[in-house]
Design a binder for these strands. Structure first.
Lengths: 212, 212
DNA sequence: TTGCATCCTGACCGTATGGTCAGCTTTCAG
DNA sequence: CTGAAAGCTGACCATACGGTCAGGATGCAA
């Protein structure tokens, strides 16, 4: 089976194990929350003995912190879509696409992030007060300029951002509810596309930035 | 201090203690999640010895279930706003107002609900498959009729509902993030009003149901 | 007043969990 | 080839947690 040659250099071992642990941890933290997650469960899912987890991540908190920071990185990457854009139609469309893709591809990460924020961001508080705040202020500036330039209606930029975050993140965090209401089946490719289109259309129309 | 006459009839005792416990539990479950919450913490917050909690609620699961069901009741009540409405402007406006009021007045409840759904709705699964599904199907019907009658653009009713849930719930679940971005202060009356107005305006405009 | 049901609680218990550690195996530079 | 560093792990520990229970206090109907 997987008993092919396994020389494996030290570096590779470290990288692969950390990756496996982080992936397992993300899933378990997402499903059970920080308090409900156990190192044993994560270890089992990662296919490693529990003691080995503590070799790579000294404490549960440290492991959790790594998971959360990973998500934050992904989150920030998607945020760049805004910058390259010439106007609200391009920028917001791209941002919605990117965030919906995250909701679809990294639902566990999204849930961990949501959980972290809901519990008062014990780990990410400093990031939120620095990186997130700066990013937000920057985008508020961009949106304000679009408004000044008459490219969209005068909508409060912050509430618009919250709306974008909320609507896109919802498909990950409340994915179970959506699935249940979808007859117990996860959304198809087509349904995901429709979701994106609907969100884009309603919001872009709603802020007076006609898509066509 | 509170050592005024305390005859307290049995009925009252029971009612008041259950109320205090449920309130404390809601807060602790919201802040720490099910797994992170401890009966001791809830007991302390409710001002009762831990053993007394188990007199009223046999297990942690039972207490949690009660909390979650309470939220669901409130949630369903707000849902009625839809029925009395003549068209999308009235209906959706009222619904947004109601749900934003819940986010503001019961943030803990909202968080517990979100947490429950995020973790796969272990307690509420049956409710979601019956009550919630029925409610949703009903509202989908109403919205579809509005579309047929030309009162709004042809937007997928389900995705519209998700959008309403997402945007309003966001102000509770991600309240901490919003506060942080608001300079660490909770939203003022005015800001809450602006939030509501923004959401209503964008969505109602976005679906082609002009507010004026 | 009496008897009983309800209410209350300190002390206790079994278990699960995060974390430790001594000692093993494997990689790899020199 | 060799030794040291990195990687690995079964067995173990202390603690915290959910839950129990015997027995005391209190409201209340008769």
């Amino acid at each position: 089976m997987s008993e092919t040659t396994r020389p494996m250099r030290r570096q590779d071992i470290r990288r692969e194990n950390e990756k496996a642990i982080l992936l397992a941890a993300e899933k378990v933290f997402a499903e059970a929350g920080f308090g409900g997650a156990t190192m044993q469960l994560i270890a089992d899912l990662a296919g490693l003995p529990k003691a080995n987890l503590h070799y790579y991540f000294a404490t549960k908190e440290e492991l959790y912190r790594s998971v959360v920071q990973n998500i934050f990185e992904i989150w920030l990457q998607a945020a760049n879509c805004f910058d390259a854009a010439r106007g609200p139609v391009d920028g917001i469309s791209a941002y919605i696409d990117a965030k919906m893709e995250i909701s679809r591809r990294h639902p566990d990460g999204s849930k961990v992030w949501a959980s972290e924020v809901m519990h008062g961001a014990p780990v990410l508080q400093d990031y939120m007060e620095s990186t997130l705040r700066e990013w937000t202020d920057g985008r508020v500036g961009i949106i304000s300029r679009w408004i000044e330039e008459g490219k969209m209606d005068p909508v409060d930029p912050r509430h618009l951002l919250y709306m974008l975050w909320a609507t896109t993140q919802h498909y990950a965090d409340f994915g179970h509810q959506i699935e249940t209401l979808n007859g117990g089946k996860s959304l198809s490719d087509r349904q995901w596309r429709e979701a994106k289109e609907n969100i884009k259309r309603v919001i872009l129309t709603g802020i007076g930035a006609q898509p066509a």
